[in-house]
Amino acid sequence: MQTKSVLGQAEADTIVEAARAEASKHGWAVAIALVDDGGHPLALARLDGASPVSAYIAIEKARTSALGRRESKAYEDMINGGRTAFLSAPLAGTLEGGVPIFVDGQVVGAVGVSGVKSEQDAQVARAGVQSVAA
């Protein structure tokens, strides 16, 4: 039998708050989504001024990252690199801004962010991930 860590409410609060602090430091109006390793939502924060669609996109970026066990940017790069057949994959968040959370070498969830430039979304997501990742 294998065992692995799982994200609890305390970790969810820590992750979202760290991501929120990074976004606020730069004045970025974003949505921050946290999902478990199966892509199921655990937390969502849409900061003041963030567009409604950013919440949907943030969840999908997080889901893509959790299920794929890699940053969502990898899929964006594949598609932009000419592998357009990947557009038919059952993932809706194939844009930069989704970052997996690894604990003891296993993915336990992911953070997705949407609302500013893609690299800024990823920066906010990484701040959340770094608050708990080992």
Rank of each mutant, 00 (worst) to 15 (best):
R83C: 10
G68E: 12
G27T: 12
I101R: 09
T84V: 13
G39Q: 06
G128I: 02
A33C: 08
G93H: 12
T14R: 11
T14G: 01
L7W: 04
F86W: 15
Q130C: 00
Q130I: 04
S114T: 08
S118T: 14
R69W: 15
A43P: 09
E71C: 08
L91C: 11
V103Y: 05
A50D: 05
D13M: 13
S131E: 03
D13W: 08
I15F: 07
A127G: 07
D37K: 06
R69T: 15
A45T: 00
A21F: 01
N80I: 10
G128M: 03
A10G: 15
A50R: 00
E76Q: 14
V111C: 02
D77W: 10
H26V: 14
T84A: 11
P41S: 15
P41A: 15
T14I: 04
Q120R: 13
G109V: 05
T3P: 07
S118Y: 12
E96M: 03
D48C: 05
A127I: 04
A29R: 02
V103G: 11
A89E: 12
T3M: 05
A66D: 10
K73C: 07
I79T: 07
D37F: 08
R70E: 10
Q106V: 04
D36Q: 14
D121N: 13
F86D: 15
A12R: 01
A33M: 01
T64I: 05
R46V: 00
D121I: 10
K73A: 09
K73H: 11
N80V: 09
G93D: 12
G38D: 14
A29Q: 08
A92S: 13
G97T: 10
A29K: 06
V6Y: 10
G97Q: 10
L67D: 04
E22G: 11
A10P: 15
I101E: 12
A74G: 14
L91R: 09
E119Y: 13
A29Y: 04
A18K: 07
S72F: 03
A110N: 06
V16H: 07
G81Y: 01
W28P: 02
S114N: 02
V53W: 03
V6M: 12
S54Y: 01
T84G: 09
H26K: 12
V124Y: 09
V116P: 02
R20Q: 01
S5F: 03
F102H: 14
N80W: 02
V108N: 08
M78F: 02
L87K: 10
D48V: 00
S5K: 05
L67Y: 05
S88E: 14
A62C: 13
S88K: 12
G81A: 05
T14F: 05
G8D: 04
S54M: 00
E96Q: 10
G98W: 00
V111Y: 05
I59W: 02
A29D: 07
A23N: 04
R69G: 15
